[in-house]
């Protein structure tokens, strides 16, 4: 065990890497691990939390993340492969989805491009998102933090068709309850509309694709509507 608490694999990896995101929960690096382009996600201690509680929570997030990634991959949902997990420093070594962009950046870039081709490309993307989320909920995976930053689009792979990857499963869990799935979609709706202004119609298209391809979507959408209403009431009172 190295002096600073990081394993040899982590230390070697960090020698030649690039920090790509410093978040509130984790640092994300890009580098090479055993010869492969790899993303290292390191969850660091939160100093304001009690150390034992913090350790427990951080461990749980790491475990939830890798479990969900495997579960999704088994079901044919595109998600990065897990190469190695270091539970002592809460590090996950993941397949780097080389050449991908976040859906967030992709939408922004489309919105900056010439008006003409915008709608078609955005509609196509919304449909794709709806289908992937339907598949995920069919597997009873609740993502827990659906945003357009937690989806990657890999354009120009083997096929013409771009591949949509789901990432950042630290808050995920397994549940068959329509309520949990409804809240999952509500979280996405909130994030989507605040990140990408004036996209209400686009989000409706996403929901339409979700509904059309998911047998049990009816009860989820009912719950979504309930949660929306609760949200609105709360903001009217507050």
């Amino acid at each position: 065990m190295a002096v600073d608490g990081r394993s040899v694999a982590v230390q070697q990896f960090l020698k030649k890497t690039e920090l790509i995101k410093q978040g509130a929960e984790a640092r994300v690096y890009r580098g090479i691990f055993l010869g492969k382009p790899t993303i290292l996600k390191e969850r660091f201690p939160k100093l304001y939390r009690h150390p034992l509680l913090d350790e427990k929570l951080t461990h749980r997030r790491t475990v939830q993340e890798v479990r969900a990634l495997l579960r999704c991959r088994k079901a044919g949902i595109s998600a990065p492969a897990v190469y190695f997990v270091d539970y002592t420093c809460h590090c996950i070594f993941l397949e780097d989805i080389v050449g991908s962009v976040t859906v967030r950046d992709y939408i922004t870039s489309i919105q900056l491009s010439p008006q003409k081709s915008q709608e078609e490309r955005l509609d196509h993307l919304a449909k794709k998102m709806g289908l992937v989320l339907a598949k995920m909920h069919e597997e009873d995976v609740i993502h827990g933090d659906l945003t357009t930053s937690n989806m990657l689009l890999k354009v120009g792979g083997d096929t013409e068709e771009a591949d949509l990857f789901l990432i950042d499963f630290g808050l995920s869990y397994i549940s068959a309850l329509p309520e949990d799935k409804g809240v999952d979609m509500y979280v996405l709706e909130k994030a989507f509309l605040s990140t990408h202004p004036n996209t209400e119609a686009l989000f409706e298209k996403l929901l339409k694709a979700y509904t059309a391809s998911y047998r049990k979507s009816h009860s989820v959408i009912n719950k979504l509507n309930e949660v929306r209403l609760r949200g609105r009431k709360r903001s009217m009172v507050g």
Binding site: V66, L69, L70, A81, V82, V85, E95
Partner: peptide, 16 residues
């Protein structure tokens, strides 16, 4: 990608 399928299971087996 059978390799990814195998490596994923190896990496995650302690918590399954």
């Amino acid at each position: 990608c059978l390799l990814d399928a195998v490596v994923c299971r190896m990496a995650v087996k302690d918590v399954i």
